[in-house]
Design a protein around this nucleic acid. Structure first.
Lengths: 407, 407
DNA sequence: GCAGTTTGTTGACCCGTTGAACTATCTAGG
DNA sequence: CCTAGATAGTTCAACGGGTCAACAAACTGC
């Protein structure tokens, strides 16, 4: 139950304080060493040493020229360097995408390509993906701190494997190592660490770090796709479960109607609020919104348009989905007591039409009064949230332990 | 999201290594300094210093006389001292209880008294409780490291308050501070820290530390009482939620029949598997098992007896409850991916008759194959699990940071 | 150009771990 | 009985890292 039983040494102190300085600069923006000392509680002497170390590692740089502030010696401010970046990649049902995020939290490059090769051909997919990574990073000067691949399905980050991802046809598949092998040549950096994680969990990390729930230690994220997945961050840490499979919320047996689910069971929550449920409630089978050839965002735009035009069937469908969504959301809130619930995926796209109903249902269903103070927010990160979270996670290693970047 | 931004100092290294040594002795039992050095990776020199420090704090003692092992200088073994203990206290619907656990993990004293004073009289209850603490600890030589009070309902350990506990009539009630005030005189120890926590969460801690799930980093605990509560430990940490209210699982809307629940809603999971549901399914209203005057354990013993005798109604009730229990348990497993699910409270008492049904339903309902490897176990800690977990939690502070005990 | 103010550096000191040499205490075997 | 070998534990110089206080550097304002 305790963290690993490993002796502490002097160097851990240094490591920790490097991290303190770096994180302070991330949170509070560029500032002088004197100010950093005051704010972190470290002495000026120590901060000078730490900052020099971080500069040598390429994580910090002087922001010149020195600035006068009224009286006294002008301060030299330091800021996070933009030449170290994290890479987030995503394999999805019908596209591959890569996002590059620098230390300062700015997206430096973003690419997305349609990809329709049969997914069972994993080697080919990994080839295409590493190709896309190379293209995307070639535009960005600097060096990568790591890469996280987002995959839809059950992922075990501990083993670097995708355990079960029917959408892309990957079953018990080693992924982190093969991808790392491909990229070692391309990026030629021993520091590059490759990890795999579930897409919804990474989106939750993105919301936690950069999105609607920034600054909150306890949040839940719900993503509406064909299925529904959850990502939970509790006390600032992602809840993974023993095999990394936590968050399988789509098959909660909540539907009183025994609607058949893709999983073979009936009455799963997905049959109330999954994309399939929404579409079949909202439109007859021959309606173009069902056409799987058309882009999903376009099809959703049609729904939004109809709702805006006051179409009764669309509005009543959205009302119904909102109620179902609130029902499942209340389960999450009762069990995890998050400070914020973020709705992502297609829920965010249709959010304006869902939010009232969701909030109403949550208020009814959450046991503690006033929904236990849980805010409900829409994701504003778009469909690249998972890749963004992956890039952030890769960078986070650096913030936790700046010494992973060699001098 | 990162842990508190606090600079690290030399002393943190010492603190961490004291903790490493102490925890190793807890895990692996008495041993010599040389062996400790070998096993922890610390040098013999450091271990000698650390052990001397821990002895001075009263946390360790020599286990004499020195033992010869074949050849070489005989080793002096050290062991955890039994003169430092943690106190767990519990306020329940109809009793107060106190458990005293020493550093070595041995229960040194245990008291439980029926208590029927109207619970709204919080002052009187706290008086009675502190009286019971004094009585219980008076039998145990040594000094307390802390006390954790278990309460049924929503507890916010951060504020030391019980937010909502209808069973005992405490609403938005400050508890930790008033109890600490009472005990400062009685125990006369400035080191005594008093905290409050939800009873089911503390029982989960007990299972994690000393019970059926010992050694597992990810576990879920389900307690069957009048209601049903859950406690989840993820990656070795208790999931509390932003206000400490996590684990409200009793009101999952899982019951297809719209049975009325005490919370005012219908169809809550409690209406399928709560004690009330079990009893009303198992026996007519005039059956003595319904008599609230009789001791709960006795009434459950009657049920067990009938089941053992092959009573059809009892057996079919248990089958039905088992299925309902498995249904809700599968929600927990899908969402949290624990390595172990522990059933406590009345579920454990009737466990022999529930386990098969629960496991069957879980196998059906958990999305990942083979229930995702989640073991289902019965608690063996009995009804004092919460107090035991409280005592353990109080002690855990010492293991995490031995310097909280002054020299 | 000097007082006042703020930034940053320097060096003595303290704390804590390391590593190697050394001491202590046993058994086994001649 | 004595010595070699083995294992336990201590001592001490060295080193890394943070602190504190003094001081140097570089500005403004009068």
């Amino acid at each position: 139950m305790q963290p690993t039983i490993r002796p502490a040494e002097q160097f851990d102190v240094r490591r920790g304080n490097l991290s303190v300085a770096l994180r302070r600069l991330r949170e509070a923006g560029p500032r002088s060493r004197a100010r950093l000392a005051e704010e972190t509680g470290l002495t000026k002497a120590t901060v000078s040493v730490l900052v020099a170390d971080l500069v040598q590692r390429g994580l910090l740089r002087e922001v010149g020229p020195p600035e006068n502030r009224g009286s006294g010696r002008p301060a030299v401010d330091y800021e996070l360097h933009d030449r170290v970046y994290g890479i987030g990649a995503e394999v999805s049902v019908d596209y591959l995408s890569v996002t590059v995020l620098d230390l300062r939290g700015e997206v430096r490059a973003r690419k997305r390509v349609g990809y329709d090769v049969p997914r069972a051909e994993r080697e080919a997919t990994l080839d295409a993906l590493s190709q896309l990574v190379r293209e995307t990073t070639s535009e960005v000067p600097g060096r990568p701190a790591g890469l996280t691949l987002a995959a839809p399905g059950n992922v075990n980050p501990g083993t670097g494997r995708v355990d079960y991802a029917p959408l892309i046809g990957w079953y018990d598949a080693p992924v982190a190592a093969p991808l790392a092998d491909r990229l070692v040549d391309q990026l030629g950096d021993a520091a590059l660490r490759v990890e795999v994680e579930n897409d919804v969990k990474l989106a939750a990390i993105a919301e936690h770090a950069l999105g609607a729930a920034a600054g909150t230690a306890d949040l839940a994220y719900l993503s509406g796709e064909m299925g529904v997945g959850a990502g939970v961050i509790a006390a600032g840490r992602l809840v993974r479960g023993t095999r990394g499979h936590a968050g399988e919320i789509g098959h909660l047996p909540l539907n009183p109607a025994p609607a058949p689910c893709a999983c073979g069971r009936t009455g799963c929550w997905e049959t109330m609020v999954g994309l399939g449920a929404l579409l079949s409630l909202a439109a007859d089978p021959d309606d173009p919104v069902h056409d799987p050839q058309r882009d999903l965002e376009e099809r959703l735009a049609v729904i939004v348009q109809r709702a805006r035009a006051g179409d009764r069937r669309t509005l009543s469908t959205l009302e119904q989905v909102a109620t179902g969504l609130g029902l499942g959301a209340s389960v999450l809130i009762n069990m995890m007591n998050p400070a914020v619930l973020v709705l992502g995926g297609y829920f965010a796209v249709l959010g304006d039409y869902l939010l009232d109903g969701v909030r109403r249902e949550i208020a009814d269903r959450v046991v503690a009064a006033d929904a236990d103070g849980c805010r409900v927010e829409l994701s504003r990160l778009g469909f690249d949230a998972a890749a963004l979270g992956g890039a952030y996670a890769a960078l986070d290693r650096v913030f936790t332990d700046p010494t992973v970047v060699p001098i």
